[in-house]
Design a protein around this nucleic acid. Structure first.
Lengths: 224, 224
DNA sequence: TATCGTATTGAACGTCAGTTCAGCCGTGGG
DNA sequence: CCCACGGCTGAACTGACGTTCAATACGATA
């Protein structure tokens, strides 16, 4: 790899790409080889494997924060698709997908970020009159984002099958394309012909919670 | 564990439960301890760790096949919730969630099974008049199931955080409950106020594919 | 030039996990 | 009674991986 960029940066990028391809749990030595350095140097710069992953997480958050204004067209995952289209970001997107797949704190954090971003976008749509208002906008956005990201994660190859980074943009585009038609139909024509289900359900439920957190389940992630 | 049931069966059940709790990659020795046998005996009976997982997969398929007629109320994941409610099945459900999380062939297979099951259920709803017909029923079911299962998988704890089996029924119920209100709204009131998006999109697309496989992307799982 | 600190390496270490293997033990048949 | 055999164990082997460490190369500084 290009030795003009400092070793620690090379290591970070190699780690993002390698983990995107091989999944979390990619061996340190593999990352080292990709970066053209020894395994010991990674420890020297980052302290431990864990810390290296922390640095990757940090980098990811920087990139996604800076891209926050991106559109969430189509249900949520399209921001990722859009990012992945700029091929320099493919490693970051692949890493994000692997993180979402693996679960854990960063996954939750990223999901919340996506929810927040989508909330703004959806609200705009509501103001513009192209999206229906909701009784519980927070809960609705949460559901939409969970479904969009979740269905994307389900398409990932196994944790030990490689993810082809060069092919990632095409792959994501292909999948999101396959979703557009049924999603548009689903979001245009009501799935349920009878609104009595909703009404009777609402009749038995209290008003949607007003405070932050909405109707999400317990946030205790330790014993779900 | 009860020594009246044969050792190989005890091992299988221990493996299902332990993997549900600790994720795939739970050490053989841990499973062995749970089953009250030595690690060597697992190899003796199943040949290798890989083969043991194959046996678990087989067992899962038997259980889900036999439960195929279950309802998919609420969007798809509810079959799992229903199964998990019968606490003897909690290990199987946990194992399925771990498998879906990890991706790979069994995950794809299970998803396809769920799609098939949901297709029947949805079709019934359409005939009964409570669910709108679709231009592309297969694609619609696929999207619904992917979204339902995907959002569920996203809620799982990290692969190395334990999943509390005893709490699984309550946990799943809590999550699906939190989905009911926004989902009912989403499926009763059109999200998009204007059908022109759908119409203009359909105008640029050919008829939905008629053959099996629908509008799914390439089925090549090796290099997505 | 001498020196010091930083970057970097390659070998070695400890651990963990899957697998192998030699043997033990109880049971049923000769 | 003896023995063979299948279930079963525990120790040992092997490979992978994170981490440590002593040694080296290099560049800045006095």
């Amino acid at each position: 790899m290009d030795p003009r960029v400092p070793a620690d940066e090379r290591i970070l990028q190699a780690a993002l790409a390698r983990i995107a391809v091989d999944g979390l749990g990619a061996p340190l030595r593999t990352v080292a080889q990709d970066a053209g350095v020894s395994a010991g140097l990674i420890i020297h710069h980052f302290g431990s494997r864990e810390k290296l992953l922390d640095a990757c997480d940090q980098r990811v958050l920087e990139v996604t924060q800076q891209q926050k204004h991106s559109a969430l067209t189509g249900g949520g995952g399209a921001m990722l698709a859009q990012l992945a289209a700029a091929e320099e970001y493919a490693p970051v997107v692949g890493y994000v997908l692997r993180r979402l797949q693996a679960g854990g704190p960063l996954a939750q954090r990223l999901i919340e970020d996506f929810v927040a971003g989508a909330a703004d976008y959806i609200e705009e749509g509501v103001r513009a009159g192209v999206i229906s208002p909701s009784r519980d906008p927070e809960a609705r956005v949460r559901v939409l984002v969970h479904m969009a990201l979740g269905s994307l994660v389900l398409q990932l190859p196994g944790q030990h099958s490689p993810l082809d980074l060069a092919d990632l943009p095409r792959w994501m585009r292909e999948y999101t394309d396959s979703l557009v038609a049924p999603l548009l139909e689903l979001y245009t024509t009501p799935l349920l012909t009878d609104s009595s289900l909703l009404e009777t359900y609402l009749a038995t439920q209290p008003e949607p919670a007003a405070g932050p957190g909405g109707s999400a389940p317990s946030t205790d992630r330790s014993t779900p």
